[in-house]
Nucleic acid binder design. Sequence first.
DNA 1: CGACACTCCTGATGGC
DNA 2: TGCCATCAGGAGTGTC
Length: 291
Amino acid sequence: MPELPEVETIRRHLAPPLEGRTLRTLEILDPRWCRPLAPQELANALEGRTLERLSRRGKYLVWELTDDAYLLVHLRMTGNLLLDPQGAPPYTRVWLRFDGHDLAFADQRRFGTGELALGPQQLDSFFAARLGVEPLGEDFTPAHLLALARTSRAPIKAFLLDQKRIAGVGNIYADEALFRARIHPLRPANRLTRAQAEALRDAIVASLNAGLDAKGATIDDFRDPYGNSGAFQDEFLIHLREGEPCLNCGRPVRKLRAAGRGTYVCERCQPRPRRYAAASARATRSPARSA
DNA sequence: CGACACTCCTGATGGC
DNA sequence: TGCCATCAGGAGTGTC
């Protein structure tokens, strides 16, 4: 599943050949891709414009076209962008035909989307409604994460997967970061200590950078625009390692469910949160009641 | 606010 | 061997 490092890997491959090129045609074969817009509406809005910059926000690829028109592409589970493929790749849903380059959006499971924003204000409100802080940006400080975490009683894994809080972390990197920081996925976010929040910030950054260095993780479907797999799956510290010895202590890695997702954990290195009694939880709230 | 179910989708897997 | 049920999950929506 493409997460921040996979999307960024794609962006780095595509920006050099495509920036400065004009989008001649946008052929949307699967109308679900751009719902609720009709394929022709999106094509009419974007064809003939030049790609000024290809950027990324969270797991979105942002195609910045002439006169502040933006195509916002999300790969979801199985989306891939393939540059100048030989013939049509399986499950091709969209063709972006630039001067001199053809780009295919292939997506077996059809969760991927392409959306339109016209003008910087629409772009800002699109992301403001969906995405929180960029974890590889300057704003993502330990103090920032600590402040964010204090606002949520959700399990920390659910917290990390919430794109409105931190943009770009998905199931793989959440597991990897929690293992690195020695935090159990079910620990309530607002019960992290300051030291844990600091460790977790560093662990998120380190995990994402490790994924970037390996050019992404390929579990099933991820490919870069030239069809190559990533290598990060060979470096997982905890994710997908059920039953294997913990790299730190040797205890078998357990699989559990957190936030509805398969979640991998070493229950020695990431001790389970103590269940705290309902009474003590209540005691943290104000006992006063309005009369 | 949060847990949970449901939706989208299709290939892989497990049971019998 | 073949068929059916179940699972996987990013994000949006809706319910309690």
